[in-house]
Design a protein around this nucleic acid. Structure first.
Length: 173
DNA sequence: GCCAACGTTGGC
DNA sequence: GCCAACGTTGGC
C-alpha cells in the first residue's frame, strides 16, 4: 500500500495512544513547553519501526506519553498530542545535522516526522520504579528489558493506568 | 562506565 | 539468505 493509501485508510480509525522517548539533555519536556505554541516537529527518528508508526499510523488528536530516557531517573514526565500528521524529516538531508542520512533526499525522503503539542507536564515525574510492579503496565513495551523502540504504541488501558498514577503523584504534593 | 539487547551492514 | 561484526540505546 502506498503512503497516501495508508493515510487514507487510517483517517477513520479511533484515537490511538503512543509513547515517545527523548533524552532530556538533547530535548526535554521543558524545551517543548518553551516552544511557540508549545509545539515541535519530532525530527531525528532513524529507526524503521518507529518511523512507520509515525508515517503510517499517527493521526491528529492521538495522545502521547512523553518519556525522558537516559535521565536521572528515567521517567514519564507528561503528555502531548499529535497536531500534524507525518511529513518528511528535513533534517535527514541536512549535511550539518547530526541525524543526516545520505540516502534521504527531498525527492525521495526516507525519514518522516509528526508535530506534537504539549498537553500537560506532570507535577511529579513518574520514574520507572513507580511503574514497575503495576499490573496494568506489566506488558508495556517501555518496561520490557532491552526495549529500544523510541516511538511505541500504548494500549488505552496502559494510558489510563499511567494517568491515574500521575494524578496520584500530583495529589501527594 | 558497564554491558545486555538490540538494529544494521556487508561479506559470502 | 545467513550471520558475524559492529554501532547504538538506555537502564543501572
Amino acid at each position: 500500500m502506498s503512503v497516501v493509501a495508508k493515510k487514507a485508510a487510517k483517517s477513520n480509525s479511533a484515537k490511538r495512544y503512543w509513547l515517545m522517548k527523548t533524552e532530556p539533555e538533547s530535548y526535554s519536556i521543558d524545551d517543548l513547553a518553551n516552544e511557540k505554541k508549545q509545539t515541535t516537529f519530532w525530527s531525528g527518528v532513524r529507526n524503521y519501526q518507529a518511523r512507520n508508526f509515525m508515517r503510517d499510523d499517527m493521526q491528529i488528536g492521538d495522545e502521547v506519553l512523553f518519556y525522558h530516557s537516559n535521565a536521572n531517573p528515567p521517567a514519564i514526565v507528561g503528555t502531548a498530542q499529535v497536531v500534524k500528521e507525518s511529513y518528511p524529516d528535513h533534517t535527514s538531508w541536512d549535511k550539518k545535522d547530526h541525524h543526516y542520512d545520505e540516502k534521504s533526499t527531498p525527492d525521495a525522503p526516507r525519514w518522516f516526522m509528526v508535530d506534537i503539542q504539549l498537553t500537560e507536564i506532570f507535577e511529579e515525574a513518574l520514574g520507572r520504579d513507580q511503574l514497575t510492579g503495576v499490573a496494568a503496565l506489566a506488558d508495556m513495551e517501555l518496561m520490557r528489558k532491552g526495549s529500544r523502540l523510541s516511538v511505541q504504541p500504548v494500549k488505552k488501558s496502559e494510558w489510563d493506568a499511567v494517568l491515574k498514577l500521575a494524578k496520584r503523584s500530583k495529589k501527594k504534593k
